[in-house]
Design a protein around this nucleic acid. Structure first.
Length: 613
RNA sequence: GGCCCAGUGGCGAAGUUGGUUAUCGCGCCGCCCUGUCACGGCGGAGGUCACGGGUUCGAGUCCCGUUUGGGUCGCCA
């Protein structure tokens, strides 16, 4: 049934045909999106990545196959462009023209696809992923994948113009113990030894700075063997960059300009690709803001205190209030207990939610509990001024009124309190803030609000490991004025690390790197590395540091997240051509899979304790 | 590893306190239709209700387990 092209050459894409071509003979190739057979006249919508054009055939002398084309078949058409004789279609870019065909070639007839190839379908995602090549035919996904390609080109243009060099680093590297789990690759020629796939090109780009390349970037594939999320895939793409002889402000400056450039360049591309008008308007508004005023900064401490998160969603207010001092010594044991244990008591004021039904408050409590809070205390100030509180019996009127005043509580407000360790209070109130912000309609979903989060702590205590861990990574430069406290109070040392946050999502992050061998060695010691292990794992870096290393700093974006946010997608799966599902498998290819025993033999590998499959 | 949500013809959904032949839309197939573009009209096919077990006179519906996806906590330097 399939025919060859028999020498036909496509002259243009479907939606690239315009009124200028009226009278021209064109050769188009694409997929049958729709066949409307009216009996004597047949309308066929031909689709390719550019869009749709209508082919019209009348019965007299036409190829009879036009009337019975299977949708999604690939066909070639030679015909003449004409102004539409009948009604125009204002929804189509090619809505005023049509093609009268002379020749039809059915290049490949399609079976009925398992789901409709059109936008707005609500098909189960596993089915779509099993037939991803069909899913990707849908305009919605085509648009995002093309937008991704165009955005990467913009990034390359900008960075290249700024003197950055695109340098590739290897995918087969050594395993490093810190951080995420590595994907391992066995070596055939070194039985029992393994490569690791890079979690990021971190050390290699630092060494490129040692080599003198000055400004490096790479669109780099990275791998982390951790559980997936809507915005996390086991392999993902970073826009990775590093600069020499710079400080934190230089990195933030060039990246603010990069983002300003992208925001400026994106709207016309998005319009061309047919993105939603509100989304484009949002990007344009953000462009005006960032191109005019740059991007604001907030310290990690302020972000945690006000938003309960190191990736604050700046699209709305409803900030957190520390009421520890107000409730110190009060009658409510939960509050005083938390304070005595070195914790904190903080509250959120949900304006106008004072009459929230008990059931919804219970649901908020459940949210708080998933973040480690033991419960949620509340004060509901009803519209009539009466006050209902979960802890009124433990507190006198004076104490209660002082607390309400500290929270700026007014008639109709709902005050929610968490009392626990700093991290638990922040996490739970931060999550409640987002949930309430959504429910109360405070979030403008077309807004793009950027913020630089700076001054992260250098170290983070791990209960599990019973030691300090690097919050960013072990090569992050501390602030010089804090470094003297590295032994006396390691938790208080701030790092020259920064994240770029968009709408509550961490879109990228980086740091100034340590370039002094003594600081680096001390850092590894604090992280619990013996000199032997440090030398074993990072010896090449420490040695490199002895041969003249420039001060350097860098940043990496999660490209998938960036494209997801700018294209209004709900998951990074929507901007990755062939994504993996929750358990890290590929439903289309059936990866991962068992391999031939011979392959294992060659690698001197034996599979033990294999789960029933 | 934990918690939550979902699985009903090819696709999406409805299915009441458990009760006769499982309903609807899209798609598909056939016939008709010369200006459709969410084409229309008439007719038709297509279902082990994810799988296994249990409760019951009777299970799509209730219970337990499994499985396949989704969300999330842990985890992700």
């Amino acid at each position: 049934m399939a025919e060859s092209m028999q020498g036909l050459k496509r002259t243009m894409r479907c939606a690239e045909v315009s009124e200028k071509n009226i009278g021209d003979e064109v050769t188009l190739m694409g997929w049958v999106a729709k066949c409307r057979n009216k009996g004597g006249i047949v309308f066929v919508d031909l689709r390719d990545r550019s869009g749709i054009i209508q082919i019209v055939t009348e019965s007299e002398g036409a190829d009879p196959r036009w009337g019975s084309l299977k949708t999604e078949s690939a066909i070639a058409v030679v015909g003449t462009v004409e102004k539409r004789g009948g009604a125009v279609n204002p929804n189509l870019r090619t809505g005023t023209i049509e093609v009268i065909p002379k020749t039809l070639r059915v290049l490949s007839e399609a079976q009925t696809p398992p789901f409709l190839i059109q936008d707005g379908i609500d098909t189960r995602e596993d089915l779509r992923l099993r037939y991803r090549y069909l899913d990707l035919r849908r305009p919605e996904l085509q648009r995002r994948i093309i937008f991704r390609s165009r955005t990467v080109q913009m990034i390359r243009d900008f960075l290249s113009g700024e003197g950055f060099l695109d340098i590739e680093t290897p995918s087969l590297i050594g395993s490093t113990p810190e951080g995420a789990r590595d994907y391992l690759v066995p070596s055939r020629v070194h039985p029992g030894s393994f490569y690791a796939l890079p979690q990021s090109p971190q050390l290699l780009k630092q060494l490129l700075m040692c080599s003198g390349f000055d400004r490096y970037y790479q669109i780099a594939r990275c791998f982390r063997d951790e559980d997936l999320r809507a915005d996390r895939q086991p392999e993902f793409t970073q826009v990775d960059m590093e600069m020499s002889f710079v400080d934190q402000n230089d990195v933030i400056d060039v990246n603010t300009r990069l983002l300003a450039y992208l925001l400026r360049e994106m709207p016309p591309v998005m319009r061309e690709l047919g993105f939603d008008g509100d989304l484009i308007a949002g990007i344009e508004a953000a462009s005006a803001e960032v191109n005019g005023n740059g991007i604001g900064r907030i310290t990690w401490k302020d972000a945690m205190d006000l938003y309960g998160s190191d990736k604050p969603d700046m699209r709305f207010g409803m900030t957190i209030t520390d009421v520890s001092e107000t409730v110190r010594g009060c009658g409510f044991g939960v509050f005083t207990g938390a304070l005595e244990a070195g914790g904190t008591v903080r509250g959120l004021n949900a304006k106008g939610q004072g009459d929230m039904p008990r059931k919804r408050i219970d649901r908020l409590t459940e949210t708080a509990k998933t973040y480690g809070a033991k419960g949620l205390a509340y004060i509901a100030i009803h519209g009539d001024g009466t006050v209902k509180s979960s802890f009124s019996k433990f507190m006198g009127d004076d104490e209660m009124n002082r607390l309400i005043a500290a929270m700026n509580g007014e008639k109709g407000d709902l005050l929610l309190f968490a009392a626990d360790r700093f991290s638990v209070v922040c996490a739970s109130l931060g999550a409640l803030r987002l949930e309430l912000g959504e429910e109360m309609g405070l979030i403008d979903h077309c807004a793009f609000k950027f913020v630089w989060v700076v001054d992260f702590p250098l170290l983070e205590w791990s209960d599990e490991e019973n030691r300090f861990m690097a919050m960013h990574h072990p090569f992050t430069m501390p602030y010089e004025e804090d470094w003297k406290r590295i032994d006396s109070d390691p938790g208080s040392v701030r790092a020259q690390a920064y994240d770029i946050v968009l709408n509550g999502t961490e879109m990228g992050g980086g740091s100034v790197r340590i370039h002094m061998d003594d600081v680096q060695e001390k850092m590894l010691e604090v992280l619990g590395f013996t000199p032997e292990r440090a030398s074993e794992q990072f010896g090449f870096l420490l040695t490199a540091f002895k041969y003249g290393v420039p001060p350097h700093a860098g940043l990496a974006y999660g490209l998938d997240r960036m494209i997801m946010l700018f294209s209004g997608a709900g998951s990074i799966r929507d901007v990755i051509a062939f994504p993996k599902v929750k358990d890290a498998s590929d439903l289309m290819m059936g990866a991962p899979s068992a391999v031939d025993p011979k392959q294992l033999e060659e690698l001197f590998l034996a599979v033990t304790g294999k789960e029933e499959s």
